[in-house]
Simulated assay, not measured.
Amino acid sequence: MLRSPALSLSPQSLQRQRSLQEQAYQALRNAILSGELAPGERLVETKLANKLQVSRTPIREAIRLLQHENLATSDLDGVLRVATISIVDAMQLYDCRIALEELSVRGACHHATEMQLQELESMVEQAEKIVNSKPTQLTSFRLLDIDYRFHRLLAQSSGNPWLVSLLDRVFDQMQLLRIQTTKHNPNVLEIRTEHRQIYQPIQQRDEKAAVEAMVAHLRASKARVVQEVEQLQQTKVSSE
C-alpha cells in the first residue's frame, strides 16, 4: 500500500517553513541592528519563539544565519548571544572602512549625479539640525541612521555595486559597534562638521580633498569609538 507523501516533502510545507524562517531571521536581524536585542544579550530560543509565536526550529535556523553574518555568537559554554565588538574588532573594522570608503569618495567625485549630491547635502543639513537639538537616545539613533545613509549613498554614487555589497557587511558590524558606544556616550558620533567637510569637495569634484576629508573623518571616528570601547570594558571589569 502506497503511503501518502510526508508533510515535510510537500511544496506547501516547504514554502511555509521557508517563510517562517525568513520572517524569524528578518525579525531577529532587525532587532539586533536596532538595538532592541542589545550586544551581549542572550538569545534564548524558547523565549524568542514565544515572542514571535513560532516553533523553535525557524528560530534556531535564523540564529544560525545570524552567526554566519557574525551578528550572533556562541560562547565556550554554548550560550548564544548577540555579538559584541571588541577593541581589536573595532580597529580592524575601521581599517576596512577607510580602505573601502576611500574608493567611495573617489568614485563619487566622478559619478555622483546632481540628484545624489542634493540628497547628500540634505542629509548633512538634517544632521546639523539634530545635533543642535537637545541630545537624547532618540537623537543618537536618528544620527546613526543619517550617518549610515550618508555613507551608503556615497558608495552607491561611486557607480561600483561590488563596493556597496562589501560595505553593507561592514556597516552591519559597525551598527553593533555604534549601538554599544552611543548608548553610553551620544557624543561619540560627531558628524556635524565632518560630513559637510566630505560633501563639499565631492560637490566640487575635488577628488584629493574628498579623500583627505573622508580619511580624516574615519580616523577621528575610530579614535573616539575605540576610546569609548576601552572605557566600557574597564567599567565592566570594575563592576565584576
Score class of each variant (00 low, 15 high):
L2W: 13
S4N: 13
L9V: 12
R18W: 09
Q21I: 07
A24T: 02
Q26C: 08
N30S: 14
A31T: 04
G35A: 06
G35T: 03
E36N: 05
L43Q: 02
V54L: 05
P58V: 01
H68T: 15
H68R: 15
A72D: 11
L80G: 02
L80D: 02
S86K: 06
Y94T: 01
I98G: 02
A99E: 15
L103D: 13
C109Q: 07
E119Y: 04
V124A: 07
V131E: 12
N132H: 13
K134A: 12
Q137F: 09
T139F: 10
R149P: 04
L153V: 05
N160S: 11
P161S: 06
W162H: 14
L163Q: 02
D168L: 10
D168A: 09
Q173F: 00
Q173P: 00
L176I: 09
Q180L: 01
Q180K: 03
N187L: 13
N187V: 10
I191Y: 03
R192I: 00
T193W: 11
H195E: 08
R196H: 14
R196A: 10
I202V: 12
Q204N: 15
R205P: 04
K208C: 08
K208F: 09
A210E: 02
A210Y: 03
M214G: 00
A216Q: 13
Q227F: 00
E228V: 06
